[in-house]
């Protein structure tokens, strides 16, 4: 039981190129089990690319990623999916699945039969639908529900996947203030249940409110890594975003108030 609760994701010196453009440069991180980790950085800093590497969709040429103690490049996608669940910013719905059809897809890595999900799968889905207040929408088409409900459906699908790590990209992009906070509360609750959350977002304030630690990426490199109140400084905002800002502190919480872009 020595390492129980210790490192769940270890990224060692990962460098990634799209064609010949270096997008990630020597990233080395250790993420603890149950940690709520925030990824911030300007556009093109490599946040999404890093998430895609951890989800096994992209394979870095240099460096190694370990998830749950295993080298990710030695695992099949279906095995990665049993450890990491991804929550994308948006869901595409040309084919208009129903909410329950969609959430059931989260069970894909586990279903043993060729066709139907088992009683157990079904129970898990029903519980999760209920806890996300989606059960009354189960037969509705994805195109017919609000964006807040869509975001919940996305989260529900990831939760149904019973992951140890959840990779969340822009969890609050299209949401109003209430839903933004709601989503973050869900994520926080999950992290309390020992599910590691890695969330990438532009919303520095939102992340610093909820995250245990924050990584700041710029041009594929880690600029800073630590607790929000330590990491987020006026100098750093100026350096990374090129914006003059004031940092306000209220107890444990840190707020960035941007003033004007630097010339």
């Amino acid at each position: 039981m020595l390492y129980e609760g210790a490192v769940i994701i270890k990224i060692e010196d990962v460098t990634f190129y799209y064609e010949s453009v270096k997008v990630l440069d020597g990233i080395t991180i250790e993420v603890q089990r149950g940690e709520f980790l925030g990824l911030i950085g300007p556009n093109g800093s490599g946040k999404t690319t890093l998430l895609r590497c951890i989800s096994g969709v992209l394979k870095p040429r240099v460096g190694v990623i370990y998830v749950d103690g295993q080298r990710i490049d030695k695992l099949k996608l279906i095995e990665v999916a049993q450890i990491c669940a991804s929550v994308p910013t948006e869901l595409s719905s040309e084919f208009n699945l129903t909410v329950s059809d969609f959430v059931f897809l989260g069970r894909y890595p586990y279903v043993k039969g060729i066709w139907w999900e088992s009683k157990e799968d079904e129970q898990i889905v029903e519980e999760v639908l209920k806890s996300f207040q989606l059960h009354h929408l189960a037969d509705r088409k994805l195109s017919e529900i609000s964006s807040g409900e869509k975001q919940r459906a996305l989260l529900a699908k990831a939760v149904v996947q019973k992951p140890k790590v959840m990779l969340v990209d822009e969890p609050s992009a299209h949401l109003d203030l209430k839903y933004k906070l709601e989503v973050m509360e869900y994520l926080k609750e999950l992290s309390r249940r020992k599910i590691t959350i890695i969330a990438a977002s532009h919303d520095v304030n939102l992340l610093s409110k909820y995250c245990d630690r924050i990584i700041i990426l710029n041009s594929g490199k880690i600029v800073s890594f630590g607790r929000p109140e330590e990491v987020i400084t006026e100098e750093l905002i100026r350096k990374v975003y090129g914006v003059e800002a004031t940092i306000m502190r209220n107890g444990n919480e840190t707020f960035v108030v941007p003033k004007r872009p630097l010339r």
């Binding site: 390492y3 103690g69 279906i78 586990y110 060729i114």
Partner: peptide
């Protein structure tokens, strides 16, 4: 070394990998 230990440990924790059986049935 740490990871080797961890690897073995996690294998014990998760002995049921269903991938093989699904494909075989199909």
């Amino acid at each position: 070394n740490k990871l080797k230990y961890y690897y073995v440990h996690s294998r014990i924790n998760y002995p049921t990998r269903v991938v093989g059986t699904v494909l075989n049935k199909r």
